[in-house]
Write a protein that binds this DNA or RNA. Structure first.
Lengths: 194, 194, 194, 194
DNA sequence: CATGAATGAGAGTTCATTCAT
DNA sequence: GATGAATGAACTCTCATTCAT
């Protein structure tokens, strides 16, 4: 029974994910999800009692998958600059798939939820990413690949630019060239030019 | 008649602006605006037929006022680095007044409206700002205040960082220190260190 | 407009009264009242936001009418025993019109509402009635019509018997004879037999 | 099999009794009983198909227990006035335990069920009680404890007062003093004053 | 022009009841 | 017998939108 429940919950969350990608967060109704899942109105309430609850599970799933992806990268034996480039490439991919990402929904959600700063997952993700990039830059400096006086500052700068690009992609649209241009600008500031 | 109409339209738009600041874009109902304006339901429909229409007028008004403010700054006789610093200070102010800005509403609006890229006012504003900053940097270089190899790139970088900070302020909250830190990082990359 | 509103409110309350008489309190839904009134779902909400609110207005109306009836009786020039008999006759009428009284709805309402004792209208009505009957009995004693050692006790006894009869009429049904028998018993305890 | 069934039915009825005491009759849902019993939704339907059916069994159980209690009293060797006093004391106890009695549920149930008068258990209980009290009074008269010209009338009066007090306790709340006062009034009308 | 009462579609939510396992 | 997931009807409540005055 727990089995069945868990499976259906997962099915609902996965299906709902598609709905959130399509419609963002605020426009999604319980009916939208019911229809997408092909289940009954009351049926959905057996598993979730609000779109928020469902969305939080979608985010949880998302975070787990992101961890998996990350784990995969770490295993590889690559130079810091390669890893950073890979990371930026991933980000680029997400930005350009405007129609297939949860970005819009995530922002809409956090616009209205007043999450205490300390517990805000969005902040935690950001801070974690900054730390990782900082480490990569420091490793790159040691490896003689990068030059940078303020690794932490650079890492933060990169993350804010990425966030700026992300919101730009959702509100005005961006092209691959635009992303590349910014990534290039960032990398030029780091890579040692001889 | 046209006179009167125009005046009332303006009154509605100004009042609605406050509502959008408070509630963002999607949560605002015609009733909210009717209540805020103290006019009748039917009355509002004589001027606007949806919240979207009203919001578009709010944005128009906003753009005009922004131009005015900008004009004010240009008249002043200040060095490029002063002007840039002033501009960044303005941006900082807006970010920290989370509750008093249209930022959230604007993003919510552009999340759902598919505006053709070329006509997207958000894009136009961004591009304009980039150009101005670029010019400022170039002027700064000439004045011996700044050093920078890629003025356009730097200008874009600044704008994306600002946009990243703006969305961060709306979704996870930021402190004055956080903004100052980023601004400092940006300026350090420009100002000539002796 | 206030005019129109007030009229419609009154219409709704009067119509709803019929619904409450028919179905009691708990079974009545907003839809029941909407249907009975022949208005739209949303229309009802312009005037009342819950069945409780409507019911309270029904009770208010009832109280006012009761006062009017009472006022009418007081004006008449009748002996205490006549007035008491008249009062009992009124009560009897109400009991026997099982289908036409709010009794059931009133009890259902007070079953579930925890009204602070001091403010409980049901208690106030009861106490008021006891006082009036007590005065009537005392007047009857002075007039030589009644004999009674404890007017207050007798008054309370009468009211509790009436309440017992009332609940009996709603839950098991009573006949005119049954009421008459109790009334007779009460009066025999008061009237001086020579 | 029949054994097991009967046992489970009894368990359900006893558990449901507690639910009815807590919530009255109308507010109780099948889910409430399922939860209280710790059995499955479908399981309950194997034994009962509605809350009404369950409540009727609760009433049956109640009636049997009442008989038992009554039997206990009858065995005792006490004077009529003692027995009557004991009976009134029992009634008082029930009234004051507003939260622990089925009174509310019983009234709610009979408000909506149209039981043919002849078969109405409520009526049968009432009539039985009247008869017993009548006999007690007559016995009391013979024993020289009571004086009363109309034993049947007095018995009925007592029962209606008790019923009035009961409904008062459920709808407006009563205190011990209030009950005592009424009981005293009743007894004073019966006991021979020297 | 302006009003605000009225409408009805649609979202949220709960529960009695069924049925495959 | 027993389970509990699933269904769908019914209720509450809110708003965009219309229209007679």
């Amino acid at each position: 029974m727990g089995e069945k429940s868990a499976q259906k919950r997962k099915y609902i969350v996965e299906t709902a994910r598609g709905v959130f990608i399509q419609k963002g967060y605020k426009d999604v109704t319980m009916k939208d999800i019911v229809d997408a899942c092909g289940i009954s109105r009351g049926g959905l309430y057996l598993y979730f009692s609000s779109t928020e609850e469902i969305f939080m599970d979608v985010l949880k799933m998302e975070a787990e998958e992101a961890d998996d992806v990350f784990a995969g990268k770490v295993k590889e034996d690559a130079s810091p600059s390669d890893i950073l480039a890979l990371f930026l490439k991933e980000q680029k991919k997400e930005m350009l798939l405007k129609r297939n990402s949860l970005t819009k929904a995530v922002y809409e959600y956090y616009f209205e939820k007043k999450v205490p700063k300390k517990e805000n997952p969005l902040k935690q993700q950001f801070d974690t990413a900054v730390k990782i990039i900082e480490k990569l830059i420091e490793a790159g400096i040691e490896a003689g690949e990068f030059y940078c006086e303020d690794a932490k500052g650079a890492a933060r700068n990169i993350m804010y630019v990425l966030e700026g690009l992300k919101i730009a992609s959702q509100t005005r649209g961006i092209t691959e060239e635009m992303v590349d241009r910014e990534v290039l600008y960032i990398m030029q500031g780091l890579v040692i030019e001889e």
